[in-house]
Amino acid sequence: MLAFLVATPVLERVTATPGHGIVRGVVRSAAYVEVETFIIAVTARGVPFMPNGVALTERPSLGGWPASGTPVRLQRGGIEAGERSIIWPADRPPAWDPTLRPASDAGVDALHRRAIEILQARGIDARGDPATLPRALELSGLETAARGPGANAIALLLESVAARDGELAARAAELLLGRGSGLTPEGDDFLAGAAVVVAAFAEAAGWEATDRTRWLAAVHPPVLRRLTTPLSATLLELAIAGQIIEPVHGLLDLTDVGGRRWPTALRRLEGIGHSTGSAYAAAIGSAALFLTG
């Protein structure tokens, strides 16, 4: 199988320490390979690029993927999984850097406007404060925001962004991590969406570097892998490093002033997983709103 693109976090791991792993799970459009504590997502053609991804040129049938439990060998230029190989040119790998880098001339105002546009596009009234926004998020379909600990956690998280407060962020993360079902619980997705906004835009929003570092460290508890799934933990760690699934790049492309392209990025993001993309979108809109508000 040929790789069309390989995310740089995967290349860094493969290049630095060729090693071994195991296929942890297979679904119709992806296979998940565990290498130490990092999960590599090998995805079929058409799946949005993952920050931990190897995107194939083809769409294998379900039987075309390596079976779950297959030992994996990683090396420069490819991944061997039993009888299957995923290859790319070792000397010129088709690298994709998933790091979200705001345009140098993108201002806070532009981010604020985009935040409102994203929330409005999802039918969310953007006039709320951190305490009231969870209700609007719940109405838009975010299950985690239903009344109770989830809603409190989201309110805390948004308050932590508005107040640049690491302690509040840590409490919110503790409540959100692992909340929901599936490979990436919805609470984790929301946290990752907020984290990438802080990672990418806090500096532009006037945060001190120490505040940003403290906030990002706070949403990464030492017991992360006991609180959620390995895939979700991997994606959260990448989000904290500013590395995120590809449609988010289009969604937060603030040079798209006329708004001709970000709506399609939002639609593609919302199409990811059962609730993952929607949770990302809600989190990105909300966090960006309070980061710049």
Binding site: F4, L5, R45, G46, P48, F49, T57, W96, E246, P247, H249, G250, D253, R261, T264, A265, R267, R268
Partner: peptide
């Protein structure tokens, strides 16, 4: 086909 990062069939 294959889309460059940032784009999909909707574009």
């Amino acid at each position: 086909g294959l889309y460059l990062p940032g784009y999909g069939p909707e574009d």
